[in-house]
């Protein structure tokens, strides 16, 4: 693509300003996480005080634990379910596939708050019905069952629900690229269809699965709005803890959390990029032979 002349001084300046706008707040946040004082604007000297405080804050650590647990579980379940769903959709007749794909995209297209609210409404209504049923059973038959309420389980279900669509959409293109004759060939050579699936289809679409898994994990870790509506009063993800903290006062503990998260993301990004570069190099070598 050739848009003509190279960018001039003005456009370089504009680009630089936009990047300053994007990064200045983040760098300020990081710098003041090392502040000795209790302020985000006056420098009192270097200290790791707030990191120590952070690791002793049970609310924050609980939030980190919940976030990691729900993200890992939801990612694992959504990756497996999404892979099977994508393969199923791909092998369906068009008449069935297209409406199902549209439904699949509902959680991606809807505003987060609408997805969150609708799930909240659904859980509350379903649990109200169930709890009413339990009460009725207790009164008439003296049988009892646990009453249900919003909590970790509903949070997990919500995360799985909004993760699967991304996994499906990441895998679909890989399925389309796959040579359909491969499956038939494998079966002709004596594979059962289960073997054909594990030995042919899964390796072919593996990059799509990994991609979908990464997207699902980042979506889960990053989510605030849907979690906020489905986690109930007793469970809190890290994002929810941060939200409730910012309602009160600005505290450098949040800066320390941000710095650690930013570092983690940066590390992950570097690892992924290095891995990608290495794969490309290897692929180039193979081609040269």
């Amino acid at each position: 693509m050739n848009l003509g002349s190279r960018p001039g001084l003005f456009s370089r300046l504009f680009t630089a300003l936009v990047f300053i706008f994007l990064y200045a707040p983040i760098f300020l946040l990081i710098i003041f996480s090392f502040n000795a004082g209790n302020s985000n604007s006056v420098w009192h000297g270097f200290s790791l005080h707030w990191y120590g405080e952070l690791f002793q804050d049970r609310l924050i650590m609980g939030g980190v634990y919940t976030t990691l647990l729900v993200s890992l579980l939801a990612t694992a379940i959504a990756t497996v379910a999404g892979t099977f769903a994508a393969i199923g959709f791909y092998n369906m007749r068009r008449r069935w596939r297209e409406p199902l794909m549209v439904i699949n995209e509902i959680p991606m297209i809807n505003a987060d708050i609408v997805t969150g609210v609708s799930l909240c409404l659904f859980f509350v209504a379903a649990f109200a019905a169930w709890n009413g049923f339990v009460t009725w059973m207790e009164q008439t038959y003296r049988l009892t069952a646990p009453r249900l309420e919003l909590g970790f389980a509903t949070l997990l279900i919500a995360h799985i629900s909004f993760n699967i669509p991304y996994v499906v959409l990441a895998i679909m293109p890989k399925l389309r690229q796959m040579d359909k004759n491969l499956i038939d060939a494998a079966q002709d050579l004596g594979c059962t269809w289960m073997q054909a699936f594990w030995k042919v289809v899964v390796p072919e679409i593996k990059p799509g699965i990994v991609n979908g898994m990464l997207i699902a994990f980042t979506m889960s870790v990053d989510d605030f709005v849907i979690s906020y509506f489905t986690a109930g009063p007793k469970t809190s993800t890290l994002a929810m803890v941060i939200y409730s903290m910012t309602k009160k006062r600005v505290t450098p503990k949040i800066n320390a959390v941000s710095t650690l998260l930013f570092g983690a993301v940066l590390l992950l990004l570097i690892v992924v990029n290095v891995r990608q570069a290495r794969q490309e190099k290897a692929a180039a070598k193979v081609r040269r032979r």
Binding site: L29, S41, D222, I242
Partner: peptide, 15 residues
């Protein structure tokens, strides 16, 4: 920046 939670990005502007 989008991989940092948007609450943290918003919080940065608060301070």
């Amino acid at each position: 920046p989008m991989w940092m939670n948007f609450l943290l990005r918003t919080y940065a502007w608060m301070s």
